[in-house]
Design a protein around this nucleic acid. Sequence first.
DNA 1: TTGAAAGCGCTAACAT
DNA 2: ATGTTAGCGCTTTCAA
Lengths: 333, 333
Amino acid sequence: MATIKDVAKAARVSIATVSRVINNTDKVGEVNRSRVINAMNQLNYTPNANARALVKQKSSTIGVVVPDITDPFFASLANGVEEVARASKMQLLLSTGKQSEASELEAINLLIERRCEAIVAYSKLIPDDKLCLLSKKFPSLILIDRYIADIADRCIWLDNIEGGRIAARHLLSLNHQKLAVINSNYKIDDPLLRLTGFKQVVEKQNLTLPKNLVVSYEPTLKGGELAAQDLLEQKLSFTAVFAYNDAMAIGAISVFEDNGYKVPSDISIIGFDDVLLSQYSRPKLTTLHYPINKMATNAAKLAITYNAENIQQGFDFKNTPHLIKRDSTALKR
Amino acid sequence: MATIKDVAKAARVSIATVSRVINNTDKVGEVNRSRVINAMNQLNYTPNANARALVKQKSSTIGVVVPDITDPFFASLANGVEEVARASKMQLLLSTGKQSEASELEAINLLIERRCEAIVAYSKLIPDDKLCLLSKKFPSLILIDRYIADIADRCIWLDNIEGGRIAARHLLSLNHQKLAVINSNYKIDDPLLRLTGFKQVVEKQNLTLPKNLVVSYEPTLKGGELAAQDLLEQKLSFTAVFAYNDAMAIGAISVFEDNGYKVPSDISIIGFDDVLLSQYSRPKLTTLHYPINKMATNAAKLAITYNAENIQQGFDFKNTPHLIKRDSTALKR
DNA sequence: TTGAAAGCGCTAACAT
DNA sequence: ATGTTAGCGCTTTCAA
C-alpha cells in the first residue's frame, strides 16, 4: 500500500506537508494542498492507523471481552460498548475468553498488547487477586457483572440478591404460596445470590421453600426442560416458579404445557434477564430486566474516564434489575 | 507503560536480546534469558502490538462489518469470523455500518486504515461499482450475503431463489394449495429473490398466489404481527404461509393464535434463517437453515487466502439453505 | 507556509 | 550468543 512518502514524492512536497493536509492541523498553501489531495487519490492512499497509534501513543481502540458473542446477553453487552466507541470515534476490538481462566486472561492480555485505551471485561473465572493485580497494571480495565471490594471503583455489577427479592415479592403479591426455583448449576456467584434474595423474602413471610423444589441445571433451554421435568416428578405441588434466566423459563414452560399445565393459569413463571427471547415466547415472559446494555455503556465510559485519568463521579456501579410484567405470571386461582 | 528499552536497560542487555526472548526466535544464553524475564515481570512489560504490526507489516487483525451485533443473525456472522481469527491467532476488529452507504463505507475504511489482513463485510447499501473499486484496492475484502458478478470470487452468498423454492415445495408436499407470503419491505434483493423462487414452484403447479396474500412489512416480530393481521383481513382463505424470516413467522403465529387459528393444524407456517428463536418458539418453527456461521468462516478463510495471495480452490461461494422440519408446518387437514 | 529531522516501540539484518 | 543499526509509517518540534 502507498505510504505517506509515496504521496509526498508524487506531490513533490515533504511528508510533513502531507501529514498536515491529512490531519488538517496546519495551514497549507492552496497549490500544495490540491497536489497532495490528487496524489492521495491517485495512489489510493489510506493512512496507516498502526503507525499513527505508535507515534501518537493512542490507539483509538476500546476492547471488550465476552465469552460468546452469539449469546444475546453478551451481544447486548458488546453493543453497549460499541455505542460508546462509536460516539468517541474509537473502534471495537473483540476478544473472546471462553470457559477457562487462561482463556480469559489471554483475552485481556491481547487487548492490552493492542494498547486499548479502555477495556470492558466480562470475566468470571479469573480469581479476585489476579484481577486486582491486572487492574493495578492497567487502570482503564473495567469489570462488568462482577464485584470485587478492593477495586469496587472498577466494577459495574448487578444486585442479584435484590433481583431474587423482587421476583419473590412479585410472586407473593400474586398470592402464590407454593413456590419452586429453577436455578443454574454454573459455578459462579449469581445463582446463589439470586436464590438468597428470593429465600429472604419468602421466609420473611413464614413460607418455606422445600429443598426438592429448588433444582439446578445448565442455564439453557434444555436445562430448563430438565429442571421442569425434575420439578414435576417431585410430587410436591407448586403454583409458581422463579427461573434463573429466560432461556430456562422458556424451556420449563414447554415441558409444563406438554404435561397439561397451563402457564400462567396453572403455573406462574418468572424469568431473569429480559433478553429478546422473552418477548417472543408464548406466553410472553414476565421477567427481570437486566440493564446490560446500559451497564456496558457505563462501563465503557468509565473505562475511558480512567484512561484519561480524569475520574468523574456519578457512575452507577451498582445496578438493580426491575420487573417486566408480561403474561407468564398471574394471580393464583 | 514499559518499553523494550526499559527492559533492556533493567536486564543490562541490548534490546535485540530482549526481542529474542520475547519472540523465542534465536538462542539466548541462560543467564541473560532469565535476567530479561525478571526484568519483564518487574516492569510489567507488555509488548506493543502496534509497533510490532508496523515493523512486521502485518496486523494480525481480521475485520468484520455488520449493521447490528445485537441481531442474532449478525452475531452468528461475527462469531464465524471470530472462530477463524482465533484459529489463526488473529484478533477481531468489529465495525458497524448502520443503515447508510456512508456509514458502511466508513466502517470498511476504518478497517483498511487498521491494515486488517482480512475483511468480511456485510454491506447492502454500497452500490456494486464502488464495491468493485474497493475490492480492487483491497483484495482481501470479502462480501458476504451479496453477489456481484464482476467480483464473484469475492462474494459468499446464499441462493435465496432456491430458498423460496424449497419453502414452496415443502408446503406443497403437505398438500397445501392456498398459500400466502409474509415478506420484508426492506429495499434489498433478498425479499424479492425469495418470493421469486417461491412463485416459480407454485406456478409450476398451476396454483396462483393472489396479490392480496403477499404482504410486506418490517422484517421483525412486530412486522410479522402486522402482516398476519393484514392477511386475516383479506377474507381470502389460506392454509399455509411462507414468512421472510423467523422473527416475522413468530410474530405471525401469535396473531393467528390470538384469532383462534391453531398452528399448524389450521395454518402451517415456515420461516427463514433458523436463528435460535425458532427453536424457542411454540410451536417450534419449521424454517430454512441459513448457514451464516459456516458462510462467515468460509468468508474469513477466503479473505485470509487472498491476503496471502495464495488463492485456493474449493470455496463455497454459493450456499443453499436447507429445510429444518419442526412443528409449525403440518399436512393439510 | 514549508521542510528536515527526531523518535514512537519494535524486528531483523548484519556484525562481532 | 549478543550488540549495533536501519528502518516500518507516521506526527511533531524546530528552523528556515
